[in-house]
Design a protein around this nucleic acid. Sequence first.
DNA 1: CAAGAACCGTACCGTACGGTACTTTAGGAG
DNA 2: CTCCTAAAGTACCGTACGGTACGGTTCTTG
Lengths: 220, 220
Amino acid sequence: MQIVSISEPQGVSDLVLNEDLTPRQQEVLESALALLVDGGEKALTTAKIASASNCSKESLYKWFGDRDGLLSAMMAFQGSKVGAAVGQEDLGSAKAFKDYLIRFARELLSVLAGDTSLALNRLAIGQASNDASPLGPLLIENGRGVIEAKAVGFLNSAAEKNYLRFDDARQTYHILYGLIVRDAHVRLLLGERRELVMKNFERDAQTAIAQFYQLYGVEE
Amino acid sequence: MQIVSISEPQGVSDLVLNEDLTPRQQEVLESALALLVDGGEKALTTAKIASASNCSKESLYKWFGDRDGLLSAMMAFQGSKVGAAVGQEDLGSAKAFKDYLIRFARELLSVLAGDTSLALNRLAIGQASNDASPLGPLLIENGRGVIEAKAVGFLNSAAEKNYLRFDDARQTYHILYGLIVRDAHVRLLLGERRELVMKNFERDAQTAIAQFYQLYGVEE
DNA sequence: CAAGAACCGTACCGTACGGTACTTTAGGAG
DNA sequence: CTCCTAAAGTACCGTACGGTACGGTTCTTG
């Protein structure tokens, strides 16, 4: 399954995303991700990746071109797992939808706070000053893009069923995102300890959705 | 004026923050910041800093210890300028306070979107995987901390004057932050173009404050 | 079984960077 | 004028990393 949208034919969808990865290559990317998660970018040298995955440097360069290609492949690879993150939505009733929103909020927080997500975001942000780096756009497309598309979908459905009222679904989603995430993501990216930033997933998720309904809910 | 709070006597407030910097040293830090802004961390080598500021590497190491010390000094130095960022608050009337909040929102957005802020945040985030790096905490204290303290102050004042109603000022500030910033900061950090992320400072600021009042405003 | 491809492990190369040492120049104090 | 300190400029050192080359080994294919 190809997660990356076909929105931009040029640029991002270079070599890396098109072809399917062999199981061996996936193994390598997996252990590279593990290296990245504990150790950050400086720990992610080609030599370490090769030794950690029992693979030769020559193969790395053959498969991924160069180090940047490898990083891009890691992004795309991780992104291809995001799809099923949030469970199927339930718009059966107003109550069911609200519960689903709370699950969505909880899930969003736990994804953003995940080690791999943080490591990849740090990597992409670290490279973002380089205009030529494709990592930022890749991450936006693979991560945020997928979730946003899904959210816009169920928000529109909810509006049709008259659970919510708003003008623009995309814009409304950004408000929802703000209410849920606040500055937690950046603080985690900066290295603040998880327990300090997110003391209570459940409570935060419920508060956020309650406030979201205060802004966009339909009065009964 | 010492911006850094005395909250944590150990750790952050090492050598770097205590003593005042000589004008020469400030010049050097300034040109180092300029280097960082266009070029990112990879462009920030000791040799380049030295040559850009007509200063010897030996002096760099004498003044700042090592490269990390220099980076920390850059953070602290930039942080020491944040103080006057947001103008004086005006709680004269409910209307005046609401206007002030809108100014605050606008100012917050423009600070976060600033080149130097983005560059320093990228730097700190890039190092955050290293547990020993003081940059993240430094940035949190110098940047977010200062603004948050100020915001908590005027929120409490507003509650006393019965402009707003809430339980916990700090928590409420985080909601306000979420409504104003949403995911804009991270997207900018990831390299998304500024015009795309923030199409209209003024409108976004007003919308955010309007919604904030919907949640915490006192009915007339 | 034989021939070839894929790939591992390792050794190697060039470069760039952090950090140090040394020489020279400028200013300030007695 | 002389001495001393600070700092600029440059040269230098060790290391670590990206990238390449090569010999040996396993696996596939006919």
